[in-house]
Design a protein around this nucleic acid. Structure first.
Lengths: 177, 177
DNA sequence: GGATCGATATATCGGCGCTATATATGAGGA
DNA sequence: TCCTCATATATAGCGCCGATATATCGATCC
């Protein structure tokens, strides 16, 4: 599923600028399970406009560049529907933490402990974020939020119960590797 | 963390060919939380050889191309240690399933149900995979395996308990979007 | 017995998308 | 006063995935 499709999805929630779409990936409803950045969003919106899947109207502003507000066309809406009907790619997960942990037996104990502490703090923050329901959310958004909450909660519980497995394996001294 | 670093990590478990390293990402110990493919592994090994971080010896074979077996040098081992001491990037997670589910209220119920069924089946397979401990695993590998198991188990439980949230929201008719 | 398929093994090309950067300004905190 | 953050668009560079090319052996299938 290409960035163009993700942008169509973003616009299905209402008209938006490239800047606003980017925020949906950074902080918004997509942030926990999708990724996209300016470098791909702006070119995608241009391509979508060329193909007639979205339209663009410009709004003058003072001090800032003019706002380019994009809207889904009927053709774009159909294209999104098609994409959601295709075979989906399986989830992708990338964790430098787990990669690093594979070498716990070669790392100083302090390092491993700090790694786990940092991770626990980050995950507790995420669980906090995902605890707040929003009245305006679609059923899907609510489901995704609860899903994230459940997974992060399980992750935290696992880490707290099993951190000793890697901490005990780590080396006592402070030396590097 | 670049592919070169991941290759150093792979070679820290023993000498290997590019083909074997690829398998570590495809089926092996890295497969659940890392990604890399031929298109990046072979160039990475060339670069690592040029920089003296790995060495390469060639083994003749009949019928197949000669095996190029790579080994970590002392310099490579130090470089890996350094990388594991740096600030790690946070986990990245990409899910077309959750993206699609955001639009559950626009999709036919059959589609949503089939999506959940497919996902459950895939996840049960993963849990199965991750149930088998291996005597030869490092403590880190064992930890990562259990971690995956815990997270997938939580995921399955959540899906089974909450699938109705999106299935009830989906539209009754069979029409597309 | 012939055909097809998957595993073994290396390598490159095209294109997609992230990271960083450029540009410009107003608001708010230090 | 200065710096950082938010608003807003856009591109260049580069890293990496996916597809493809090449070659052979063993296994399965019909």
């Amino acid at each position: 599923m290409h960035v163009t499709t993700l942008c169509l999805g973003a616009l299905a929630f209402g008209d938006a600028t490239g800047y606003e779409i980017n925020k949906m990936f950074e902080d918004g409803p997509f942030s926990h399970f999708l990724d996209a950045s300016y470098g791909s969003i702006y070119p995608a919106l241009t391509r979508l406009t060329d193909e007639g899947l979205v339209t663009c109207r410009t709004e003058q502003q003072e001090g800032r560049p003019d706002k380019k507000i994009y809207s889904l066309t009927e053709k774009g809406r159909r294209q999104l529907g098609d994409a959601l009907g295709q075979q989906l790619a399986p989830d992708k997960f990338r964790s430098e933490f787990l990669f690093t942990v594979l070498f716990a037996h070669l790392l100083p104990r302090d390092r491993v402990r700090s790694l786990v502490d940092q991770r626990l703090a980050a995950m507790k923050g995420k669980v906090e974020d995902l605890s707040q329901a929003d009245e305006e959310d679609t059923p899907g958004m609510d489901f995704a939020r609860r899903y994230g909450h459940a997974v992060f909660a399980a992750s935290i519980e696992f880490l707290e119960r099993n951190r000793h497995l890697i901490e005990d394996a780590a080396i006592e001294e402070k030396a590097h590797a």
